[in-house]
Protein backbone atom coordinates (compact mmCIF):
# COMPACT_ATOMS: atom_id res chain seq x y z
CA UNK A 1 0.00 0.00 0.00
CA UNK A 2 2.56 2.54 -0.99
CA UNK A 3 2.86 5.28 -3.50
CA UNK A 4 -0.51 6.88 -3.08
CA UNK A 5 -0.65 9.99 -5.19
CA UNK A 6 -1.45 13.05 -3.14
CA UNK A 7 -4.16 14.08 -5.54
CA UNK A 8 -5.98 10.82 -4.94
CA UNK A 9 -5.67 11.25 -1.20
CA UNK A 10 -7.13 14.73 -1.31
CA UNK A 11 -9.94 13.42 -3.45
CA UNK A 12 -10.66 10.58 -1.02
CA UNK A 13 -10.64 12.96 1.92
CA UNK A 14 -13.05 15.28 0.18
CA UNK A 15 -15.43 12.46 -0.66
CA UNK A 16 -15.19 11.15 2.88
CA UNK A 17 -15.79 14.65 4.18
CA UNK A 18 -19.03 14.97 2.22
CA UNK A 19 -20.22 11.55 3.30
CA UNK A 20 -19.36 12.21 6.92
CA UNK A 21 -21.21 15.52 6.95
CA UNK A 22 -24.29 13.75 5.67
CA UNK A 23 -23.82 11.17 8.38
CA UNK A 24 -23.38 13.63 11.21
CA UNK A 25 -26.32 15.60 10.00
CA UNK A 26 -28.46 12.50 10.17
CA UNK A 27 -27.36 12.02 13.75
CA UNK A 28 -27.30 15.63 14.84
CA UNK A 29 -29.18 14.90 18.05
CA UNK A 30 -26.80 12.20 19.11
CA UNK A 31 -24.00 14.58 18.29
CA UNK A 32 -25.51 17.31 20.43
CA UNK A 33 -25.93 14.93 23.36
CA UNK A 34 -22.40 13.76 22.99
CA UNK A 35 -21.10 17.31 22.97
CA UNK A 36 -23.05 18.12 26.10
CA UNK A 37 -21.33 15.27 27.93
CA UNK A 38 -17.99 16.37 26.62
CA UNK A 39 -18.46 19.88 27.93
CA UNK A 40 -19.41 18.74 31.41
CA UNK A 41 -16.05 17.18 32.11
CA UNK A 42 -13.94 20.35 32.35
CA UNK A 43 -16.63 21.98 34.48
CA UNK A 44 -16.42 19.23 37.11
CA UNK A 45 -12.68 19.52 37.54
CA UNK A 46 -12.89 23.26 37.32
CA UNK A 47 -15.40 23.34 40.15
CA UNK A 48 -13.43 20.94 42.32
CA UNK A 49 -10.23 22.90 41.96
CA UNK A 50 -11.90 26.26 42.29
CA UNK A 51 -13.44 25.01 45.54
CA UNK A 52 -9.99 23.95 46.72
CA UNK A 53 -8.43 27.26 45.67
CA UNK A 54 -11.12 29.19 47.47
CA UNK A 55 -10.69 27.20 50.68
CA UNK A 56 -6.95 27.88 50.52
CA UNK A 57 -7.39 31.63 50.33
CA UNK A 58 -7.33 32.02 46.56
CA UNK A 59 -4.50 29.99 45.01
CA UNK A 60 -3.27 26.39 44.91
CA UNK A 61 0.20 25.65 43.63
CA UNK A 62 0.27 28.93 41.74
CA UNK A 63 -3.18 28.42 40.19
CA UNK A 64 -5.94 30.86 41.04
CA UNK A 65 -9.59 30.07 40.38
CA UNK A 66 -9.29 32.10 37.18
CA UNK A 67 -6.21 30.11 36.14
CA UNK A 68 -8.09 26.87 36.67
CA UNK A 69 -10.92 28.16 34.52
CA UNK A 70 -8.48 28.92 31.71
CA UNK A 71 -6.63 25.63 32.15
CA UNK A 72 -9.65 23.36 32.08
CA UNK A 73 -11.40 25.23 29.29
CA UNK A 74 -8.37 25.19 27.01
CA UNK A 75 -7.78 21.61 28.01
CA UNK A 76 -11.27 20.74 26.88
CA UNK A 77 -10.64 22.36 23.50
CA UNK A 78 -7.30 20.63 22.98
CA UNK A 79 -8.65 17.32 24.20
CA UNK A 80 -11.61 17.61 21.88
CA UNK A 81 -9.38 18.34 18.91
CA UNK A 82 -6.90 15.55 19.62
CA UNK A 83 -8.97 12.66 20.91
CA UNK A 84 -9.72 9.60 18.78
CA UNK A 85 -12.30 6.86 19.12
CA UNK A 86 -11.07 4.38 16.56
CA UNK A 87 -9.50 2.03 19.08
CA UNK A 88 -12.97 1.47 20.50
CA UNK A 89 -14.21 0.36 17.09
CA UNK A 90 -11.49 -2.12 16.18
CA UNK A 91 -12.70 -5.02 18.26
CA UNK A 92 -16.09 -4.78 16.67
CA UNK A 93 -14.57 -4.34 13.23
CA UNK A 94 -12.41 -7.40 13.59
CA UNK A 95 -15.08 -9.55 15.18
CA UNK A 96 -17.86 -8.67 12.77
CA UNK A 97 -15.57 -8.85 9.76
CA UNK A 98 -16.01 -5.19 8.93
CA UNK A 99 -12.30 -4.98 8.39
CA UNK A 100 -12.57 -7.04 5.26
CA UNK A 101 -14.15 -4.37 3.04
CA UNK A 102 -11.51 -1.90 4.21
CA UNK A 103 -8.76 -4.35 3.36
CA UNK A 104 -10.19 -4.96 -0.08
CA UNK A 105 -9.83 -1.32 -1.02
CA UNK A 106 -6.67 -0.08 -2.66
CA UNK A 107 -6.04 2.43 0.11
CA UNK A 108 -4.71 2.13 3.65
CA UNK A 109 -7.59 1.92 6.19
CA UNK A 110 -5.83 4.56 8.27
CA UNK A 111 -6.97 7.14 5.76
CA UNK A 112 -10.57 6.16 6.30
CA UNK A 113 -10.29 6.84 10.02
CA UNK A 114 -8.16 9.94 9.69
CA UNK A 115 -10.59 11.50 7.24
CA UNK A 116 -13.49 10.59 9.50
CA UNK A 117 -11.71 12.02 12.50
CA UNK A 118 -10.72 15.32 10.91
CA UNK A 119 -14.20 15.84 9.51
CA UNK A 120 -15.78 15.17 12.86
CA UNK A 121 -13.40 17.60 14.54
CA UNK A 122 -14.10 20.34 12.05
CA UNK A 123 -17.82 19.90 12.54
CA UNK A 124 -17.82 19.76 16.30
CA UNK A 125 -15.34 22.58 16.64
CA UNK A 126 -18.01 24.96 15.47
CA UNK A 127 -19.86 24.17 18.71
CA UNK A 128 -16.90 23.64 20.99
CA UNK A 129 -15.26 26.98 20.17
CA UNK A 130 -18.20 29.21 21.15
CA UNK A 131 -18.83 27.10 24.26
CA UNK A 132 -15.18 27.50 25.23
CA UNK A 133 -15.51 31.26 24.86
CA UNK A 134 -18.66 31.13 26.96
CA UNK A 135 -16.88 29.16 29.69
CA UNK A 136 -13.90 31.51 29.64
CA UNK A 137 -16.20 34.48 30.09
CA UNK A 138 -18.55 32.88 32.65
CA UNK A 139 -15.77 31.71 34.91
CA UNK A 140 -13.79 34.87 34.34
CA UNK A 141 -10.75 32.94 33.16
CA UNK A 142 -7.36 34.55 33.05
CA UNK A 143 -5.99 33.83 29.62
CA UNK A 144 -3.61 36.28 28.01
CA UNK A 145 -0.94 34.53 25.99
CA UNK A 146 1.82 36.48 24.28
CA UNK A 147 2.02 36.28 20.49
CA UNK A 148 4.89 33.78 20.50
CA UNK A 149 2.89 31.50 22.80
CA UNK A 150 -0.04 31.53 20.43
CA UNK A 151 2.35 30.86 17.56
CA UNK A 152 3.94 27.93 19.40
CA UNK A 153 0.53 26.61 20.39
CA UNK A 154 -0.42 25.82 16.80
CA UNK A 155 2.39 23.35 15.97
CA UNK A 156 2.13 21.94 19.50
CA UNK A 157 -1.55 21.27 18.88
CA UNK A 158 -1.02 19.72 15.44
CA UNK A 159 1.80 17.51 16.72
CA UNK A 160 -0.30 16.52 19.72
CA UNK A 161 -3.08 15.39 17.40
CA UNK A 162 -0.69 13.53 15.10
CA UNK A 163 0.93 11.78 18.03
CA UNK A 164 -2.31 10.84 19.69
CA UNK A 165 -3.89 9.61 16.48
CA UNK A 166 -0.91 7.45 15.54
CA UNK A 167 -0.47 6.00 19.01
CA UNK A 168 -4.13 5.25 19.54
CA UNK A 169 -4.42 3.69 16.10
CA UNK A 170 -1.47 1.51 17.02
CA UNK A 171 -3.12 0.62 20.31
CA UNK A 172 -6.22 -0.32 18.36
CA UNK A 173 -4.25 -2.98 16.48
CA UNK A 174 -4.29 -5.08 19.67
CA UNK A 175 -7.73 -6.18 18.51
CA UNK A 176 -6.04 -8.34 15.89
CA UNK A 177 -4.58 -10.53 18.61
CA UNK A 178 -7.05 -10.31 21.45
CA UNK A 179 -10.70 -11.08 21.17
CA UNK A 180 -11.79 -8.61 23.83
CA UNK A 181 -9.85 -5.40 24.04
CA UNK A 182 -12.34 -3.24 25.95
CA UNK A 183 -10.42 -3.74 29.18
CA UNK A 184 -7.15 -2.65 27.62
CA UNK A 185 -8.81 0.35 26.05
CA UNK A 186 -10.33 1.40 29.33
CA UNK A 187 -7.01 1.02 31.11
CA UNK A 188 -5.46 3.19 28.46
CA UNK A 189 -8.23 5.74 28.72
CA UNK A 190 -7.82 5.98 32.48
CA UNK A 191 -4.09 6.51 32.04
CA UNK A 192 -4.91 9.35 29.66
CA UNK A 193 -7.27 10.93 32.20
CA UNK A 194 -4.58 10.92 34.83
CA UNK A 195 -1.36 11.51 32.91
CA UNK A 196 -2.43 13.91 30.20
CA UNK A 197 -3.49 16.56 32.68
CA UNK A 198 -7.21 16.03 32.48
CA UNK A 199 -7.79 15.64 36.20
CA UNK A 200 -5.48 18.35 37.41
CA UNK A 201 -2.67 20.38 35.89
CA UNK A 202 0.37 18.10 35.89
CA UNK A 203 2.19 20.66 38.06
CA UNK A 204 -0.12 19.83 40.96
CA UNK A 205 0.62 16.12 40.79
CA UNK A 206 3.45 14.48 42.72
CA UNK A 207 6.88 14.84 41.18
CA UNK A 208 7.09 11.15 40.28
CA UNK A 209 3.82 11.28 38.33
CA UNK A 210 4.99 14.36 36.47
CA UNK A 211 8.11 12.49 35.40
CA UNK A 212 6.09 9.50 34.22
CA UNK A 213 3.74 11.73 32.24
CA UNK A 214 6.70 13.41 30.56
CA UNK A 215 8.67 10.24 29.85
CA UNK A 216 5.62 8.53 28.40
CA UNK A 217 3.83 10.26 25.53
CA UNK A 218 0.85 11.37 27.63
CA UNK A 219 1.96 14.89 28.47
CA UNK A 220 2.79 15.57 24.83
CA UNK A 221 -0.60 14.40 23.61
CA UNK A 222 -2.70 17.01 25.44
CA UNK A 223 -1.23 18.88 28.39
CA UNK A 224 1.71 20.39 26.55
CA UNK A 225 -0.20 22.62 24.11
CA UNK A 226 -2.41 23.76 27.00
CA UNK A 227 0.53 24.68 29.16
CA UNK A 228 2.06 26.51 26.21
CA UNK A 229 -0.87 28.78 25.51
CA UNK A 230 -1.45 29.41 29.21
CA UNK A 231 2.00 30.87 29.35
CA UNK A 232 3.30 28.47 31.97
CA UNK A 233 6.35 27.39 29.97
CA UNK A 234 9.57 29.20 29.07
CA UNK A 235 10.61 29.38 25.39
CA UNK A 236 13.22 26.74 26.12
CA UNK A 237 10.67 24.39 27.66
CA UNK A 238 8.39 24.87 24.66
CA UNK A 239 11.23 24.04 22.27
CA UNK A 240 12.07 20.90 24.23
CA UNK A 241 8.40 19.94 24.24
CA UNK A 242 8.06 20.31 20.49
CA UNK A 243 11.15 18.16 20.05
CA UNK A 244 9.72 15.52 22.38
CA UNK A 245 6.53 15.51 20.36
CA UNK A 246 8.43 14.98 17.11
CA UNK A 247 10.49 12.16 18.58
CA UNK A 248 7.34 10.44 19.80
CA UNK A 249 5.65 10.91 16.46
CA UNK A 250 8.61 9.19 14.82
CA UNK A 251 8.44 6.32 17.29
CA UNK A 252 4.69 6.01 16.88
CA UNK A 253 4.99 5.85 13.09
CA UNK A 254 7.52 3.06 13.35
CA UNK A 255 5.35 1.16 15.80
CA UNK A 256 2.30 1.60 13.66
CA UNK A 257 3.98 0.32 10.50
CA UNK A 258 5.36 -2.69 12.29
CA UNK A 259 2.14 -3.38 14.18
CA UNK A 260 -0.02 -2.99 11.10
CA UNK A 261 1.98 -5.46 9.04
CA UNK A 262 1.97 -8.01 11.83
CA UNK A 263 -1.70 -7.33 12.54
CA UNK A 264 -2.86 -7.87 8.98
CA UNK A 265 -0.79 -11.01 8.76
CA UNK A 266 -2.45 -12.24 11.89
CA UNK A 267 -5.92 -11.23 10.69
CA UNK A 268 -5.45 -13.01 7.40
CA UNK A 269 -4.11 -16.08 9.15
CA UNK A 270 -6.97 -16.63 11.57
CA UNK A 271 -9.84 -15.90 9.25
CA UNK A 272 -11.02 -12.56 8.03
Amino acid sequence: MRGLPLRQLVDVYRAKFRAEIALQFAYRWALAIWLLGLLLQPIVYLVVWTTVARSQGGTVGGFSARDFAAYFTIFMVVNQLTFTWHYWEFEWRVRQGFFSPLLLRPIHPLHNDLAENVTFKLLTFTVVAPVAVLLLVTFNASLNPSPWQVLAFLPALVFAFALRFLLEWTLALAAFWLTRVTAINQAYYLAVVFLSGQMAPLELLPEAVQVIAAVLPFRWMVAFPVETVLGRLSPMEVAVGLAAQLIWIGLALGLLRFGWRAGVRRYSAVGA
Binding site: A26, Y27, W29, A30, L31, I33, W34, L36, G37, L38, L40, Q41, V44, V47, V48, T51
Partner: peptide, 25 residues
Protein backbone atom coordinates in the same frame (compact mmCIF):
# COMPACT_ATOMS: atom_id res chain seq x y z
CA UNK B 1 -33.73 8.06 17.46
CA UNK B 2 -31.42 5.80 15.57
CA UNK B 3 -27.83 6.19 16.58
CA UNK B 4 -27.84 6.64 20.29
CA UNK B 5 -24.87 4.74 21.71
CA UNK B 6 -23.68 8.19 22.61
CA UNK B 7 -26.55 8.77 24.96
CA UNK B 8 -25.01 6.40 27.48
CA UNK B 9 -21.82 8.40 27.16
CA UNK B 10 -23.62 11.40 28.55
CA UNK B 11 -24.72 9.39 31.54
CA UNK B 12 -21.19 8.15 31.92
CA UNK B 13 -19.72 11.64 32.02
CA UNK B 14 -22.51 12.82 34.31
CA UNK B 15 -21.77 9.84 36.50
CA UNK B 16 -18.13 10.87 36.63
CA UNK B 17 -19.33 14.10 38.21
CA UNK B 18 -20.67 11.92 41.05
CA UNK B 19 -17.10 11.24 42.13
CA UNK B 20 -17.43 14.45 44.08
CA UNK B 21 -20.21 15.51 46.47
CA UNK B 22 -22.87 17.29 44.42
CA UNK B 23 -22.92 20.05 47.01
CA UNK B 24 -19.75 21.62 45.62
CA UNK B 25 -21.23 22.24 42.20
Amino acid sequence: LVRLENILVIFHSMYEAGRWPVGIY
